Amino acid sequence: MVRVTTTDRRTLLRLSTGLVLTTGCATSGAVTHPTRSRAPATPSPAPGPRRLPGLPAQLTHGPRTRPRVALTFHGNGDPATARALLGEAERSGARLTVLAVGTWLDDHPELARRILDGGHDLGNHTLHHLGVNDMSEADARAEITGCAERLRRLTGSIGSWFRPSRAARASPLVERLARETGYPHVLSYDVDSLDFTSPGAPAVTRTVLREVRAGSVVSLHFGYADTVAALPAVLEELDRRGLAAVTTTELFS
């Protein structure tokens, strides 16, 4: 049998008291150890472009056999209208595609992650939103790569899609430059809402609903009050017709 002396008991008492002070709540005289802070999670890189075998280099619409449409927005203008449109779409369960202007991302970098966190597609609409088809090769390349670089810096990828600025379709030169930058397809559209002419919300609604059908890619814009006002009626009628508003990636999936 091992005898425990008085000295041993005092030693054990001091050790047990020290354990209580260091592992329990902080008290006067207690020795505390700093906890290691957890580094904030790094957002996953945004989806990048993907090649769609069997489809042309320039896409104007998706499959006509499925009840889906893509509402695509030129990303520019007042950020308040962008947030209003994103919020309205999300309340209705709709997902959008935003083709962002590079300088707009410079001014409002937080919107890139806001768009992606809402489940929407994000793509490239050139750096300055000028007539890219009319530029020299060097200038056009700079417009495409300049926006791609901003998207990569903000999201980890160059974005899902490229759409030329100031044109529904890309010239052969711009198509080639987009492909060399990493975009296998140029995203065009088959329904032009003409919302940028500020015709009034009812006119925007009528134009879209008159022309839209299964597989349509609709061109709309951030920055216009008419578009914000028209979107609820557009989404309601699309739902009544059984047409789901999905991202362009989903449309071509």
Rank of each mutant, 00 (worst) to 15 (best):
P67C: 04
A80H: 06
H33F: 14
S37Q: 15
D107T: 13
V20I: 13
A82C: 14
D134S: 05
T72G: 00
G223Y: 03
L96H: 04
L99S: 10
L55V: 05
R141E: 10
A170G: 11
R206L: 07
S44A: 00
L173A: 11
V2A: 09
R83C: 07
L243W: 06
G62L: 08
A138F: 02
T35W: 03
L111H: 11
T6L: 09
I115M: 01
D139I: 07
R91A: 15
V69R: 05
A46Y: 02
M1D: 15
G182H: 02
S188H: 13
E110I: 00
L220M: 08
L111S: 05
T17K: 13
A203V: 09
A203M: 08
A138Q: 09
G77Y: 09
D195H: 14
S165V: 08
R64F: 01
D8Y: 14
L12V: 09
P199N: 10
V2I: 07
P49S: 03
S171H: 14
V234P: 14
L21T: 07
L177I: 06
S171P: 12
T197H: 12
H221F: 06
T22E: 14
A142Y: 03
G131N: 11
H185Q: 04
G131I: 01
G119E: 06
A84K: 12
F162N: 11
G223T: 01
T207D: 01
G156Q: 11
H185D: 05
L21A: 08
S219H: 09
V31D: 02
V20A: 11
